[in-house]
Design a protein around this nucleic acid. Structure first.
Length: 477
RNA sequence: CGGGGCGUAGCGCAGUUUGGUGAGCGCGCACGGUUCGGGUCCGUGAGGUCGGCGGUUCAAAUCCGCCCGCCCCGACCA
């Protein structure tokens, strides 16, 4: 506890796990690959949930819950889906002490069981669209795990929609990708690149997969949310059919989209520094911490009185906490709350009580630079303004960082030099072979083909043939 | 699944090479005092089947064998 986090420059992944544990976001569970999300980390996740849920509702979605167990045969109904997920399934074969007639899969994702239910619920075009989301846990037996980024069990939301036409489903897919983008940018202060996945990187069973990709502090990419256009693949596998206006039987068009607790890892790696966690105000469980300072007992009650008064002024406007613990010195508390990423600290001591003022200290600006004295009379306004200034500063800083580490290499040699230090935004001919070779030679994969790019043509960074699109290449988590 | 590292008090570690004096150090924890505007200081104290099982030996944290677990790096993935 008294130890400091490992500096990022010394060992980035050690820094990451240090921060996760020391800030008390999560702890390792007794089962390999599993973690306990501690109250502070869970509060952060709950704020992520809230930010998303609000947007899901605003776009017409409703929440529901489907079972954890899926008959093994369901998973096997969609050819690509089974191929993609088989290696990482957890399967239950015994229940109540007896061998089950059919093994049950612990859901790795719910397209199949939801598809099955949709086939029973959808009869007519009037039943469409179906716009359902669920908040759930899923299990994927990953070989290599890291807290939040890849755990055997993780929490997420998965939206599953069914539509009458391909166009409508396509629109939905991009609408939700856009919701993710908006959430990442506005709430998490993480700049992301929305784009399309290559064939080899797309979701098992999808026609087209879309993603938002973010750059972490070590220049690696993190897929932070995905939205899939499933075409009629799952509708055919699960017989999701409806009668259209012309009394003709049609397969529905479906989508699915998800964002997981991985986002928490992204927040840590995008904003954190050598002091520890740095949380964007909109998602921070504690936005403002008030640290009282006193020398003698006589001052104690006066300081505390002022502190609670300030807390009262702020309480219904921001998430505020008073740290009145007597066993720790103010300096200790400063470090503790900085390590835990609280965006704004208010210091109130005897001098401040006397002058009816308080010190504001920003987490995103180190030392003196982030400290400011404000009069009590304007404190509430100042706090709110400062929080929103921190929110936008974090975004701008992350954006500038990504831009500074995004390259447009002139040739493959430059490309190879760029990859360890950031993203390469390069022309790609579209062949899976070039993609595979690049991966083999540089460990970089196509993170996405950005939706927004200037039309034109170029030469594939690998083979030199004509290319119509540029892709983001990077090493990924 | 392959490579590397590690399991000794809640945490971080020393001790293991060369078996044997007392299982130790720092932090944390409890109590008392002191301090408090950037991780106070002092004192007292609690806390350990040395990952597990088996073997060698008069004697094992230390040597041997097997097993288990965790972390990091790779291939696979939200």
């Amino acid at each position: 506890m008294t130890a400091k986090v490992t500096p990022r420059s010394e060992d980035y992944s050690r820094w990451y796990t240090d921060v996760i544990q020391m800030a008390e976001l999560a702890d390792y569970a007794p089962v390999k690959g599993c973690m306990v999300i501690r109250p502070y980390g869970y509060a952060l996740w709950e704020n992520v949930k809230e930010g998303l849920d609000r947007r899901f509702r605003a776009t017409g979605h409703v929440n529901a819950y489907f079972p954890l167990f899926i008959p093994l045969s369901f998973i096997q109904k969609e050819a690509e889906h089974v191929a993609g997920f088989s290696p990482e399934l957890a399967i239950v074969t015994i229940g109540g002490g007896e061998e089950l007639e059919e093994p049950l899969v612990v859901r790795p994702t719910s397209e199949t069981i939801i598809g099955y239910m949709y086939s029973r619920w959808i009869r007519s075009y009037r039943d469409l669209p179906v716009l359902i989301n669920q908040w759930a846990n899923v299990v994927r037996w990953e070989k290599r795990t890291r807290p939040f980024l890849r755990t055997t069990e993780f929490l997420w939301q998965e939206g599953h929609t069914a539509h009458a036409t391909a166009e409508e489903a396509q629109e939905e897919t991009l609408r939700m990708l856009n919701v993710y983008t908006e959430f990442a940018v506005e709430d998490a202060a993480i700049p992301v690149i929305p784009g399309r996945k290559s064939e080899s990187e797309k979701f098992a069973g999808a026609v087209t997969s879309y993603t938002i990709e973010a750059m972490m502090g070590d220049y690696r990419a993190l897929q932070s949310g995905t939205s899939h256009f499933l075409g009629q693949n799952f509708a055919r596998a699960f017989d999701i059919k409806f009668l259209d206006e012309n009394n003709e039987l049609q397969y529905a068009w479906t989508t699915s989209w998800g964002l997981s607790t991985r986002m928490v890892g992204g927040i840590v790696m995008v904003h954190g520094d050598d002091q520890g966690l740095v949380l964007p105000p909109k998602l921070a469980p504690i936005q403002v911490v008030i640290v009282p300072i006193w020398m003698e007992d006589a001052q104690r009650s006066r300081v505390l009185e002022a502190v609670y008064q300030v807390e009262g002024m702020l309480r219904d406007q921001v998430r505020v906490k008073v740290d009145a613990r007597e066993e720790y010195s103010p300096g200790w508390k400063f470090n503790e709350w900085e390590m835990r990423g609280v965006p704004l600290r208010i210091e109130i001591g005897p001098k401040d009580v006397e002058r009816e003022q308080a010190i504001l200290a920003r987490r995103d600006l180190p030392g003196r630079e982030g400290k400011r004295t404000v009069p009590r009379s304007t404190l509430v306004g100042e706090v709110k303004e400062t929080l929103s200034a921190i929110q936008s500063h974090l975004y701008q800083r992350a954006l500038a960082f990504r831009q500074a580490h995004t390259y447009d290499p002139a040739d493959y040699n430059e490309f190879k030099e760029a990859i360890p230090n950031g993203f390469a935004f390069s022309w790609w001919c579209g062949s899976a072979e070039c993609e595979a070779r690049i991966k083999e030679e540089t460990k970089a994969t196509i993170r996405c083909i950005p939706l927004e790019q200037e039309p034109g043509r170029g030469k594939c960074i690998y083979c030199g043939r004509d290319a119509q699109e540029r892709a983001i290449f990077a090493r990924a988590y």
